[in-house]
């Protein structure tokens, strides 16, 4: 456990010092959310209706733009291969590094989401479900991203390829995330079942993505 806390601390420190910390993620989030009303016009009813979806897409993009950080730099300077010689399994290394990524990206965005919701004229009643859904769903984004990052490990400027690989996998998270965040309007209340499915997605990615990412990293070195 000592080994893994050292790793998480190091990744947090590096993210903070290299400008990949919470501030940058929130800044990016703010820019996307601000651009949106400029693009689709100041119709507050429309903005209110799409606010949850818009926040989720902004969240998804900010995670996507930062996931290559999880492994790429460590791969380039030889740290990753040295980690393979450590006493902890590669799967746990992936979990720790992804957790550190979530702490610097997913978590701060989920916590600040209501503030940005106000920019999009979100209904007060929808704020709680939105925070809950982003909080529960964002780990899945980080873990799927880590998988993509592991697969595109040796690819220089692999950002586009990475997006191509992961964005389809983000679809279920987005669908259930948005429907869990939408306050029950007309029709049956589907936010609770959606939240449960979203939790299941997060838990499944927590277990499966590290296994797959570790396999991808190992096969990269072979």
């Amino acid at each position: 456990m000592n080994h893994l806390t050292a790793l998480v601390k190091r990744d947090l420190k590096l993210a903070y010092r290299l400008g990949g910390g919470a501030g940058t993620a929130i800044g990016f989030f703010l820019v996307v959310v601000t651009l949106l009303p400029l693009g689709i016009g100041p119709d507050s009813a429309l903005l209110s209706r799409i606010s949850a979806g818009a926040i989720w897409i902004a969240l998804l993009l900010s995670v996507l733009l930062s996931v290559d950080r999880i492994f790429q730099a460590d791969h380039e300077d030889g740290s990753l291969e040295l980690m393979l010689l450590g006493p902890v399994s590669l799967e746990m290394i992936v979990v720790s590094k992804t957790f550190a990524h979530w702490l610097t990206t997913g978590l701060p965005l989920a916590v600040t989401a209501p503030l940005f919701g106000v920019l999009l004229n979100i209904e007060p009643g929808a704020i709680g479900p939105l925070v809950l859904s982003t909080l529960i769903g964002s780990p899945a984004l980080s873990f799927l991203g880590a998988l993509g990052g592991a697969i595109t490990l040796g690819v220089r400027r692999g950002g586009l390829l990475l997006s191509l690989l992961i964005l389809p996998l983000y679809v279920p998270v987005l669908i259930f995330g948005v429907s869990a965040a939408s306050a029950s309007g007309a029709g049956p209340d589907i936010s609770t079942p959606s939240l449960l499915v979203l939790s299941a997605l997060s838990l499944a990615t927590l277990v499966l993505c590290p296994l797959a990412a570790a396999a991808a990293i190992r096969s990269h070195f072979r």
């Binding site: 590096l14 030889g78 040295l82």
Partner: peptide
């Protein structure tokens, strides 16, 4: 084992 490879595995920001 200790593996000292070509790359030094150092982080410039630390």
């Amino acid at each position: 084992s200790h593996f000292i490879g070509h790359a030094n595995a150092l982080k410039g920001a630390m």
